[in-house]
Simulated scan of single mutants.
Amino acid sequence: MSAQEALVPALLHVTTPSMAVVESALDAGYDGVVIDLQHGEVGLDAACRMLRAIPRGNAYAFARVASIDFGAIGRLLDSGARGIVAPTVETAGQARAVVSATKYPPLGGRSLGPSRPALYGGEDYCAAGNAAVATVVQIESAAGVEAADEILGVDGVDSVYVGPADLAVSYGLPGRPDWTSGPVADAVVHLAERARAHGVTFGLYCSDPAFAAGQVLRAGLDYVGLGIDLMFIGRHARATVAALKGAS
């Protein structure tokens, strides 16, 4: 692995409501997590507790919300989330709504009332908070790819995160990640180019580390979502049981 690849932050998707899973992922070498309120069993209260298992200065304490809900997003940010991932953004209007929910005035409409004290340092708390929090639009449909310039051109959007499985489904393909050719692979390269043109960071979910390393070079990833906790458990459990039965 090159020095460039080694420096790309890796985030684990966490779908189980467990502070221990978050701590274990960071201890294992992950740079951050995506606490997933869209898929899995993590509710809002659990997500707010899980954020407290992450050191306050970690820039990759991300939470993916189920929808653009001002109340839920505000609570996650007040509990220490440093990035909000909004799923299936397909229009500039949706992107503006995410910015409004994640940024303090004058850029957005986030309410000031942190429950985790001293989240943001500096003379201007609101400006510091806006700089510290990443507003992440997730593009995971053909419609989102087509509207990429309008979405990424919205003031306050900091990053685009690609969901390849849903993107594949929108193209009439099987819902899986790690595409090396075809419309999904082409869309990833296109979105990476548009992200650079608009000055926002670019992330991609991958399931295979070797594929992710290749995408760092091909598409220029700034960070990578790499694996899901429940899938890790299932994979290791199957291998363990198969090894036992094979040895008996």
Rank of each mutant, 00 (worst) to 15 (best):
L119W: 04
T16P: 06
E90K: 10
M19L: 12
R82K: 05
S24K: 14
L221M: 06
G93I: 02
T91H: 06
H13I: 15
F70C: 14
D124I: 00
G156C: 04
G246F: 03
F202R: 04
P9F: 08
V157Q: 12
E41I: 09
L226M: 14
M50P: 10
A25P: 09
A118I: 10
L204N: 09
L107T: 11
A92H: 06
D229Y: 00
C48Q: 15
P174E: 13
T15E: 15
D124S: 15
Y120K: 11
R110D: 00
D158G: 02
L11W: 02
V169T: 14
G122T: 09
T91Y: 01
V85I: 09
L217A: 13
G246W: 08
R75G: 05
E140S: 11
H198L: 12
V188C: 09
Q4W: 11
A72W: 00
R56F: 06
T102F: 00
A131N: 01
A61P: 14
I54W: 00
L11D: 09
T180K: 14
G109Y: 01
R218N: 09
P114L: 02
R194L: 02
A81L: 12
E146F: 14
V99A: 07
A47S: 08
P9E: 03
G71R: 14
V160A: 01
P17E: 14
D27V: 11
S18V: 07
E5N: 04
S111D: 11
L226S: 06
R96T: 07
E146D: 13
A192M: 12
A127E: 07
I84C: 06
R116N: 14
V65W: 05
M50D: 03
G40V: 05
L12G: 03
A128I: 14
A237M: 13
A212H: 02
E150R: 01
V65F: 06
G108L: 02
M1W: 09
V34D: 00
S79M: 02
T180E: 15
T88C: 15
D27R: 15
E150K: 12
G153W: 12
L112T: 06
I68A: 08
S111Q: 08
R218Y: 12
D31C: 06
G32H: 03
P164N: 04
V136T: 15
V154G: 01
V89A: 02
D69W: 01
V65P: 08
R64N: 04
A3Y: 08
V22Y: 01
A127D: 10
E146V: 14
P87Y: 01
V241L: 15
A118C: 02
G74H: 04
A168C: 13
F211T: 10
T102M: 01
G163I: 13
